[in-house]
Design a protein around this nucleic acid. Structure first.
Length: 420
RNA sequence: GUGGCUAUGGUGAAGCGGUUAACACAAACGACUGUGACUCGUUCAUGCGUGGGUUCGAUCCCCACUAGCCACCCCA
């Protein structure tokens, strides 16, 4: 039995990787136009970083982390998300002393020990963005607009931007209590799961799919009615700016976040085309996080997108691998050597050129050229070489012309390089 | 962590207890000794996830395990 990969950790193979590259390139490009720079942080961090930021009692920390001790007996964890490491780096490198505002994005693998299913894997990938240092609701609107812009650019249409506010440490506890009280009075109507969790995670009950729970919580108090003055004003300003800018959104007062650090604005990009994994991107404001991690008291807001889910949504609109501009078919050793040298020179000048390296029959070479979808084939045999000529075949039309080898490089480069 | 379904070649899959494991696609080569895509031909599983069991005999029945998928939970 040969060695296999790890459950829930997938290879990204040619044919699929082009879509990944496209999604990443678009992120770099679009985030760049909004003033974001990339930050690259390690995949492993001290376990404590995630416990403190995500929350000791969250599912992620309680049962989903890949935690191990290194040879010095430090407890380390494969990052389950990207915000905490970025904040750690921000604080450690004192980035706020260089610029009061940081706009950062990252991409890379995250790890969560969950049972794999559609759109959910143990190693998965996120593209995320964070803004640190701005409290004004304009930045909330800006981040949401960028996210929305990204989805447009990438051609993923079947999504809806949902918005909510979770309040702040001032107003959230009161709401929480109100909600627990409400649920307590209706425990019999709730499903087993909800009866279990209404104390620890009352918000989750609002999101339950069971019909009994839906009915029982129909009249439940809304977070939005319990926001304090500051949070309420912030939330309505965010909405106002979004309307001004023309970024579409809907309000979902029952939206829940799984990480403890979120405050005020939270949001999700949801779809119904992905089965039960309906969030393609999610994020929110985390005004207390940086201070909690020992940094300056700066506000922050950010989001992460699940790349596997984006790829799934791209579906059959996959990005095609690039086709060779030219395939060199040679007959005989001399011609093969000549072609090989020519191909190398063309490649150096940016032409996507291919050839058969093993001296197969012309038929076989053309078959390969066809398979690779080469646009043209340059055929050089012993006869042509002697006459300093070559046949240039246009595959699509099957037409063929005789060219002089003199100056052929220039001709091929000018004729075949796609206009940029 | 819980549940349901599935497990035959490079891929999609027939076969459902009994002599050569169908068919299609892909791949390689040939018909065309120097020309792709069409056509035709040839080749391509010594084995049916793994381990047990039932049987004269198992890819087909039973059990266990493993893996995959989907859902719950949770989340990107």
């Amino acid at each position: 039995m040969s060695i296999t990969g790890i459950k829930g950790m997938n290879d990204i193979l040619p044919g699929e990787v082009e879509t990944w590259q496209f999604l990443e390139e678009q992120a770099r490009h679009i985030f760049g136009t909004y003033g974001f720079s990339e930050i690259r942080v390690p995949v492993v961090e001290k376990t404590e970083l995630f416990c403190r930021s995500i929350g000791e009692t969250t599912d992620i920390v309680e049962k989903e982390m890949y935690t191990f001790n290194d040879k010095s007996n430090n407890s380390l964890t494969l990052r389950p998300e990207g915000t905490a490491p970025v904040m750690r780096s921000f604080i450690q490198n004192k980035l706020h002393t260089k610029d009061p505002v940081a706009k950062l994005y990252y991409t890379g693998p995250m790890f969560r020990y969950e049972r794999p299913q559609k759109g959910r894997y143990r190693q998965f990938h996120q593209i995320g963005a964070e803004v640190i240092g701005i409290e004004d609701p304009k930045i909330d609107a800006q981040v949401l607009t960028m996210l929305s812009h990204y989805f447009d650019a990438v051609g993923i249409e079947d999504v809806e931007l949902q918005l909510n506010s979770l309040g702040c440490p001032e107003c959230r506890p009161a709401y929480r209590q109100a909600l627990i009280g409400f649920l307590e009075a209706r425990l019999e109507a709730l499903c087993d799961d909800c009866r279990r969790r209404y104390q620890t995670n009352p918000l989750r009950v609002l999101d339950c799919k069971a019909t009994g729970c839906k009915e029982a919580t129909a009249e439940a108090p809304s977070v939005l009615d319990h926001l304090c003055g500051g949070c309420d004003e912030h939330f309505s300003k965010v909405q106002g700016y979004l309307v001004d800018v023309g970024t579409p959104f809907t309000i979902n007062a029952r939206m829940v976040r799984g990480l403890d650090y979120y405050t005020k604005t939270t949001f999700e990009m949801v779809t119904n085309s992905l089965g039960s994994q309906n969030a393609v991107a999610a994020g929110g404001r985390y005004d207390g996080l940086i201070k909690d991690l020992g940094g300056p008291p700066l506000p922050g807001i950010g989001f992460a997108m699940g790349v596997e889910r984006l790829v799934l949504m791209k579906g059959d609109k996959r990005i095609e691998p690039s086709r060779p501009d030219l395939f060199l078919a040679a007959l005989g050793d001399e011609a093969a050597n000549y072609s090989f040298a020519l191909m190398s020179r063309l490649q150096r000048q940016g032409l996507h050129a291919e050839m058969d390296y093993e001296g197969k029959s012309l038929k076989s070479q053309l078959r390969r050229a066809n398979k690779l979808q080469a646009r043209r084939v340059l055929i050089i045999g012993g006869d042509e070489l002697a006459r300093q000529e070559a046949q240039l075949r246009t595959m699509e039309t099957g037409t063929q012309e005789t060219l002089s080898l003199e100056g052929i490089e220039k001709f091929l480069l000018s004729g075949l390089t796609p206009a940029l």
